[in-house]
């Protein structure tokens, strides 16, 4: 999804690597990469909690595989960031306090029950598809190149969760749980499009082809026909100019390091071994 709504931006110049950027743009790019990487990283952790306890063995295997993709994407993004900052990917991933993480509020929440996990995945994957479609046209060549591969894998994830949304929605009990989960998640999902510090620099350099506010509109526009087809409420309004804006207040702060207490618990667990002997080879 999302493809139809996206107008390709052809970058005027190609930025081959960090050496082509000034200090301020470099810092803004670091914020963007950290946000993208942390979204994938933390979601990959929640997903891997389903490994071994999924609702059916087949789904268990599929979910574990998706979790690995996300961690793999996070690793590749941390490596791009490492090229920019000189910090190793593993240190970026493990040697930060919970407030140092930049994932959107949606990803800081507990995995919840199966309906909540599916609803979160669907909101995230659709938003991510919009974001990745835009960033595939980024003038920063290392990012555009990496995202080509990421998008191919994410397309499969979306297909998987699109199937689940429909299956849950087709059943009264499933639909009740699904709509409750979506309702609860919308405000935090909108944080995926909270403008980043230094975003204007990224847009000017063609690194971020369009501002996040515009991407949010593209995302909601892409969801509108699907939610209408499934008779699911979409908390958004179409303005006279045709642009979609949300009708619920976003829950922001993730990009500044504010997260749900659930993330603090997850962070404690995920750094438990690393903290036993920091800096050691594991």
């Amino acid at each position: 999804m999302g493809e139809g709504a996206v107008t390709a931006t052809i970058p005027t110049a190609t930025l081959a690597g960090p050496e082509d950027l000034d200090g301020a743009t470099r810092a803004a790019l670091a914020e963007l990469l950290l946000a993208l990487a942390d979204d994938e990283f933390v979601l990959g952790f929640w997903d891997s909690e389903w490994t071994g306890i999924g609702p059916a063995l087949e789904e268990d295997v599929a979910y574990s595989s998706i979790a690995q993709d996300e961690i793999g994407h996070a690793r590749a993004l941390y490596e791009l960031l490492a090229a920019l900052t000189g910090r190793k990917a593993d240190d970026l991933a493990y040697d930060r306090g919970p407030e140092g993480f930049r994932q959107a509020r949606l990803l800081g929440l507990d995995r919840g029950d199966w309906a909540q996990s599916i609803a979160r995945r669907y909101l995230y994957d659709t938003a991510d598809a919009t974001r990745l479609a835009a960033l595939a046209g980024s003038s920063y060549a290392p990012l555009a190149g990496l995202l080509g591969k990421v998008r191919r894998e994410e397309a499969y994830h979306l297909l998987h969760f699109d199937g689940w949304i429909r299956r849950l929605n087709d059943d009264d009990r499933g639909r009740a749980r699904l709509t409750a989960a979506l309702d609860a998640l919308w405000p935090a999902a909108l944080d995926l499009f909270t403008p980043l510090a230094g975003e204007d620099l990224l847009v000017r350099a063609g690194i971020l082809p369009r501002p996040f506010a515009a991407l949010r509109g593209e995302w909601l526009a892409a969801l509108a026909p699907i939610f209408a087809e499934l008779d699911l409420p979409l908390p958004a309004r179409r303005g006279d100019d045709g642009a979609y804006t949300p009708t619920v207040a976003p829950l922001t702060g993730g990009r500044d390091g504010n997260h749900d207490p659930a993330f603090r618990r997850l962070h404690d667990e995920m750094t438990m071994v690393y903290r036993e002997e920091p800096g050691a080879n594991w």
């Binding site: 952790f45 991933a93 667990e269 594991w282």
Partner: peptide, 12 residues
């Protein structure tokens, strides 16, 4: 231990 794996490689 999946959640606690101390490096990205080990976690994967």
């Amino acid at each position: 231990w999946i959640l606690r794996a101390p490096t990205l490689k080990r976690k994967l």
